[in-house]
């Protein structure tokens, strides 16, 4: 299988995503430039973290007009995998591939620290190798990570089991203290109804190697690779 890592003007986690998928996971991976109009045969597209288009207007808002977004939309519509990390999650909501919006953090501060995540669902290509309820320590680095959707949309997400990750404490409890940014219902990551598009604010690509002191995030990339090994 092959990963395609999108470089938008202002992406800054593109090389981290490349390193993890290619060097750590050992998969094939290629960069996709924002002006490209095809995905070069990628099976899983990663929209990395950063500040695409300087976050002008709203985080992720201007990325929807990048030429690369059209083939990404078609890829997603055809069931292809798309993973949005941090700014990539913001882009996916702005593009309309995921519901809701990411607003300014509740306490207005940019947050750069580790959080604990609870895996809510394992029946996605991104979480198939995880255990339900598994707690992972993963860093966040964002100013706009406060997930918002109206109650009807949130209920819909819960009903369809589209909430994939939530912020939790050491015991896996969903407390408000464990919620770093005020996200509705402690939501850190969601998928679309078809379960092939995932967005999350934390950065699993920054914690996928023991030499960095934490490899909790690697299981997400391993899951993607494993679901290809079984599906195709």
């Amino acid at each position: 299988m092959k990963f395609g890592i999108v470089i938008l003007p202002g992406s800054n986690c593109d090389h981290d995503a490349m390193h993890v998928t290619k060097d750590v996971l050992g998969a094939e991976a290629e960069f996709l430039w924002h002006k490209d109009t095809d995905l070069k045969g990628s099976d899983c597209v990663i929209l990395p973290g950063g500040f695409a288009y300087g976050d002008y207007l709203r985080a992720g808002a201007l990325a929807k007009f990048a030429p690369i977004m059209e083939p990404i939309r078609r890829h997603a519509a055809g069931g292809g995998l798309v993973l949005g990390i941090c700014n990539g999650f913001q882009v996916l909501t702005e593009v309309g591939l995921l519901p809701g919006a990411l607003m300014r953090n509740q306490h207005l501060r940019f947050l750069s620290r580790d959080v604990l995540l609870r895996t809510e669902e394992t029946n996605t290509a991104f979480t198939s190798e995880m255990q339900k309820g598994q707690i992972m320590r993963v860093p966040i680095a964002h100013g706009e990570g406060n997930y918002f959707a109206d109650d009807a949309t949130l209920d819909d997400l819960e009903r369809n089991r589209q909430v994939i990750f939530r912020y939790c404490d050491e015991e896996g409890r969903l407390t408000s203290e464990a919620n770093p940014n005020g996200s509705a219902r402690n939501i850190a990551g969601i998928c679309n109804r078809e379960r092939n598009v995932l967005g999350l604010m934390p950065h699993p690509e920054r914690c996928s190697e023991n030499i960095l002191g934490n490899s909790d995030g690697l299981v997400l990339f391993k899951s993607i690779a494993a679901s290809f090994a079984t599906a195709r």
Partner: peptide, 8 residues
């Protein structure tokens, strides 16, 4: 299409 995010 651009100036507002009508979700919020």
């Amino acid at each position: 299409r651009l100036l507002a995010n009508t979700v919020v």
